[in-house]
């Protein structure tokens, strides 16, 4: 599904070379829920940009669903992102003053074949994140958690191979964050491949597997012994609030 081998990335500022990734190799299979962890400056964002086909490595191999990403040009990368990757960002990045429906349908604008049932698909995607009744709401009429759910619906609409989430709860309160994580858990159960990029170990423990980056290399790569259950945590949180 995803196969990276000897991935290196070096940034050049004039004559100064700054290596950020120094040979990263791993494999992520279909249906896996993987967290990529690391403190800032460990190359975590760079790795995410490469996995998301937004950036190319200086050296190494990246196979996405059998496609050799490194050899592709900018336009082909755009097509690949459109088809195979659903992004969820920390800052949501919804379209300014656009309704939830329009934000969700955005990736279809750039699809090679615009589906006839675009609206129906957007409605389904919004329903999947529990926002069926917020279709015509604009970002300023939605809470942070709701905005992030719109962003997840947007990531789902093209039915991508991978959902790539970069600190998806970073801008949210605890409860909204747990709700988002519950959605990811549900998507994982439905068979989606999810890559969660975060600096937060607690958040990473929502995944099945954690890859820890340190100084541009993989420090550890292993299964999570006790996967967190956001639904349970939400219940406890709810119970805690009830007591008050």
């Amino acid at each position: 599904m995803i196969e990276v081998e000897g991935l290196e990335k070096t940034y050049f500022a004039g004559s100064v070379a700054t290596p950020v990734l120094k040979g990263v190799s791993f494999r992520i299979d279909e249906g896996e829920y993987v967290a990529i962890m690391g403190t800032s400056g460990t190359g975590k964002s760079t790795l995410m940009n490469i996995l998301g086909c937004l950036d190319k490595p200086t050296a190494g191999r990246y196979l996405l669903d059998g496609t050799d990403v490194v050899s592709l040009d900018d336009d082909a990368l755009s097509g690949l992102r459109n088809e195979k990757i659903g992004f969820v960002f920390q800052q949501f990045h919804l379209l300014e003053r656009a309704t939830a429906m329009r934000s969700v349908m955005l990736p279809l604008i750039y699809a090679d074949d615009y589906p006839e049932n675009a609206e129906e698909r957007a409605e389904k995607a919004l329903a999947a994140v529990g926002l069926a009744d917020r279709r015509q709401y604009r970002p300023n009429e939605l809470s942070g958690g709701q905005q992030q759910r719109v962003a997840i619906a947007r990531a789902l609409i093209t039915d991508p191979e991978i959902i790539l989430a970069d600190e998806p709860t970073g801008a949210l309160d605890r409860k909204s964050g747990l709700e988002i994580m519950a959605i990811f858990k549900k998507l994982h159960r439905q068979g989606r491949t999810i890559i969660l990029v975060t600096h937060d170990r607690a958040l990473a423990e929502n995944a099945q597997r954690i890859i820890v980056l340190e100084d541009g290399k993989i420090a550890t790569d292993g299964a999570v012994e006790k996967q967190r259950d956001p639904d349970l945590e939400l219940d406890t949180l709810g119970a805690g609030e009830d007591k008050k």
Binding site: L54, G79, E83, L106, Y110, R154
Partner: peptide
């Protein structure tokens, strides 16, 4: 001002030409 919008469009599949 719209850098983020442009970045988002690129991320979801817009080419430079788009």
């Amino acid at each position: 001002e719209r850098q983020k919008e442009i970045g988002l469009r690129r991320a979801v599949g817009a080419t430079r030409r788009d």
